[in-house]
Amino acid sequence: DETGKFLVLALYDYQEKSPREVTAKKGDILTLLNSTNKDWWKVEVNGRQGFVPAAYVKFL
């Protein structure tokens, strides 16, 4: 159920650099879980949760 969740689009490829991050490919649609940090947003992609740089994604 996606009610109340926001989707964001990956603008660039991002390769995770730590276990707390997730890899995303340009064009991926990610479920935004938390955007309270202006630099790192928590997302879910391909069943995995983790952080990506906020500058790499935008709201749909």
Results as ranks from 00 to 15, higher is better:
F6D: 09
G47M: 04
F59Y: 10
P53S: 05
V57W: 03
K17G: 08
F59H: 10
N46T: 03
T31C: 13
F51Q: 01
W40T: 00
T36M: 10
Q15R: 09
K38H: 10
S35M: 14
A54D: 02
V57H: 00
V8C: 10
I29T: 04
Q15Y: 15
K5R: 13
F59V: 14
A54I: 06
E2L: 14
K38I: 08
V43W: 03
Y56N: 08
T31S: 07
G47T: 05
E44V: 06
R20M: 13
T31H: 10
K26G: 04
K58S: 13
Q15K: 12
S18T: 10
A24V: 15
G4D: 10
L11D: 01
N37T: 05
P53Y: 07
D28V: 05
D28I: 06
Q49A: 10
D28K: 02
G4P: 14
S18E: 08
K38S: 11
Q49N: 05
D28E: 12
E21V: 03
R48H: 07
E21H: 05
D1S: 14
E16K: 14
R48T: 06
R20I: 12
K5I: 12
L9V: 15
G27V: 03
Y12C: 15
K26Y: 05
F59C: 15
G47A: 02
N37K: 04
Y12T: 06
K38F: 07
L7P: 01
G27A: 02
V45E: 01
Y12V: 09
L32E: 00
V22S: 03
N46V: 04
Q15E: 14
A54L: 05
E44W: 05
K58Y: 09
Y12H: 10
P53N: 04
A55F: 08
Y12M: 11
N37C: 09
N46K: 08
L30I: 07
D13V: 06
A54S: 13
L32W: 03
L11R: 03
D1W: 14
P19Y: 10
V22I: 13
Y14G: 01
P53C: 09
A54Q: 04
V57G: 00
W41T: 02
K38N: 10
P53K: 05
R20K: 12
A10F: 12
G50M: 04
L60G: 03
W40L: 01
Y12E: 09
N34T: 07
T3V: 13
K38R: 11
V52T: 01
R48M: 08
F59Q: 10
V22E: 04
S35F: 12
T31V: 15
L11P: 00
L30F: 05
W41F: 10
L9Q: 10
D13C: 11
A55G: 11
S35Q: 10
S35H: 09
S18F: 06
P19F: 10
K42Y: 15
P53W: 11
T36G: 09
L11S: 02
P19V: 09
A54E: 03
N37A: 07
Y56V: 15
D1F: 14
F6S: 11
V57I: 09
T23N: 05
G27L: 03
T31K: 13
V8N: 01
E21A: 04
A24M: 15
I29L: 08
A24D: 02
W41G: 00
V52F: 15
S18W: 07
F6P: 12
L30V: 04
V22P: 01
A24Y: 11
K38M: 09
V52Q: 01
I29H: 04
A54N: 03
D1I: 13
L9P: 00
N34D: 15
T23R: 03
I29G: 01
D13W: 09
T31R: 13
V45H: 11
A24C: 15
V22T: 03
E21P: 04
F6E: 08
K58P: 02
Y56L: 15
E2I: 13
L32M: 03
K42P: 01
L30A: 03
R20A: 12
V22A: 01
L60W: 11
L7N: 05
Y14C: 10
R48I: 08
A10M: 15
G4S: 13
G47P: 02
K38Q: 10
T36V: 10
T31I: 15
G47S: 04
L30E: 02
A10K: 02
R20L: 14
T36Y: 10
T31Q: 10
V57R: 00
F6Y: 12
F51T: 02
Y56E: 01
Y56T: 10
K58V: 15
G27D: 04
L9D: 00
L7C: 14
E44P: 00
D28Y: 06
K42E: 14
T23M: 04
T3H: 13
Q49Y: 07
E44K: 04
T31A: 07
V8Y: 07
L32F: 05
V8D: 00
Q15C: 14
Q15P: 06
D28H: 04
G4R: 13
K58I: 14
I29F: 05
F59T: 09
E2G: 14
N37E: 08
A55S: 14
T3L: 12
P53D: 02
V22L: 10
W41M: 03
L60D: 02
E21C: 12
A10I: 14
T36L: 09
